[in-house]
Computed example of a mutant assay.
Amino acid sequence: MLSIYIHIPFCVRKCLYCDFLSFPASERDKEIYAAALLKEIETEAFRYEERLVDTVFLGGGTPSILQTAHIEKIMDTLKNCYRFSSKPEITIEVNPCTVDKEKLSRYKAAGINRLSIGAQSVQDSELRALGRIHNAADFFAAFHMAREAGFDNINVDLMSALPGQTAERYLETLLKVTGLKPEHISAYSLIIEEGTPFFDMYGEKEGENGVERGLPSEEEERRMYEETGKRLEEAGYCRYEISNYALKGRECRHNTTYWRRHDYAGFGLGASSMVENVRWKNTARMQTYLDAYGKGKIHGNVKEEIQRLGRAEQMEEFMFLGLRLTEGVSRAEFFEAFHEDMEKIYGPVLQQLLDNGLIDTGERVKLTSYGRDVSNYVMAQFLF
């Protein structure tokens, strides 16, 4: 099996917190990029002719900013060049105010069967503080249009610990979103990344400056975190990964590809891949990418940071990626992959984490509730 990620780097404008590879562009530049992207997808197909594609994820940026015809051509090219499983999961990320009913209906007709809507909040003041281009009404309208267009698998992205946000207002957002019954909710805390406008505005989030300038206190952020799991569980959502919740059977298959270390191929500017324990990234330089695949060229080399993972690195990833999942990692699967008992490789680490109440052990090793709270620390223990 193979998963495919396609990166669309364009957005209407950069959000104040965003450090993703994304930027505004003219319609002409989008058209030129889309043509090069199609050429890359076609050119690389021979590498995967023996694979069945089980999931596709169009991410960004804001993929829905492209003209619908470009998205349809991407879908047509994928269908023509790759073999698909019988029931693939095909997701596109959308901003609420970049879609309408016609666009959503055409996505559905093209074979896209899952939407990921970047709501972040349903409080207009919080959306303005984030620099989002939509308001709450745009989100609700987009959600209902998606249902009318036939989408029965929708994710909603939500963020907590936002500027000016209180726990009460965050819980109000949770209540309104769960009332819509999306199949999946991604709920995560704002991270202040260096190099973003938010970093200049708030500095280090852990420092006092952030609180002084309007970010929630550590205690309030903690309350939001705890209430997220509680309220979503009450609404029927199962937490299957640190930041992801789903109705039964609606976990995101594409995302679990990453956490379970299955193979995925990335196309487009800056896209990452991991195939047969080799990792690489496409160039993040637009001109280099266009020089490789633009203007009808059929051969290009945009791969950078190529790394063949050794056995120890594969073990590390098996542990720290797999532990993101609520189900944890399987001792039997570890042995099948590496022909070694997990205890032989990580015995002292496992015992230390068990003694500190950070993991549960058995046939599977998984984080406790406390372990999820300090997951970065736990996962760091598995690095050689």
Rank of each mutant, 00 (worst) to 15 (best):
V211Q: 00
K230G: 05
F199H: 10
K181H: 10
M224Q: 14
E251P: 02
Y237W: 13
I192E: 07
V211P: 00
P216Y: 07
S189L: 06
H144I: 00
E241T: 08
E148Y: 07
D152R: 10
M159R: 09
R223M: 14
R128C: 07
D200I: 00
L127Q: 09
S189W: 01
V211W: 00
Y225S: 02
R132W: 09
E208L: 13
Y240E: 09
Y225K: 02
G236N: 14
H144S: 11
R231T: 13
R128F: 12
N135S: 08
M224C: 01
S243Y: 12
R132D: 10
I185L: 12
E183C: 02
R231M: 15
E233Y: 08
Y237L: 11
Y225E: 10
T166P: 07
A146M: 11
Y237Q: 13
E183P: 01
E204K: 05
E241V: 12
D200H: 05
E183V: 04
L190M: 04
T228L: 11
E172I: 02
C238S: 15
E241I: 09
S217Y: 03
F151I: 09
E233A: 15
Y237N: 12
E227R: 14
E234W: 05
A235N: 09
T178S: 13
T228F: 11
E251C: 07
G214R: 00
N155I: 10
A141I: 05
E251W: 13
T166L: 10
A146C: 07
K248F: 11
L215C: 03
F143V: 09
V177E: 04
E233S: 15
G203P: 03
E206N: 10
N155G: 07
K176W: 04
L247E: 15
K176V: 01
G131Q: 11
L127P: 09
T173P: 01
F198G: 02
Y245A: 08
G229I: 12
R250K: 14
E218R: 08
E126N: 03
M159S: 07
G214K: 00
K205D: 04
P216E: 02
A161L: 06
L162G: 11
R132P: 10
L174K: 01
E212L: 14
E233G: 15
R147V: 06
G207A: 15
F199M: 00
I192W: 08
E126Y: 10
I191V: 12
L190F: 08
T196R: 02
K230F: 15
G195S: 03
A167C: 13
S160K: 02
I192D: 05
T228I: 15
M224N: 03
T178C: 09
E227A: 14
F143P: 09
G150A: 11
R213H: 12
C238Y: 15
E208R: 08
N153A: 04
G179L: 05
P182K: 00
S243W: 13
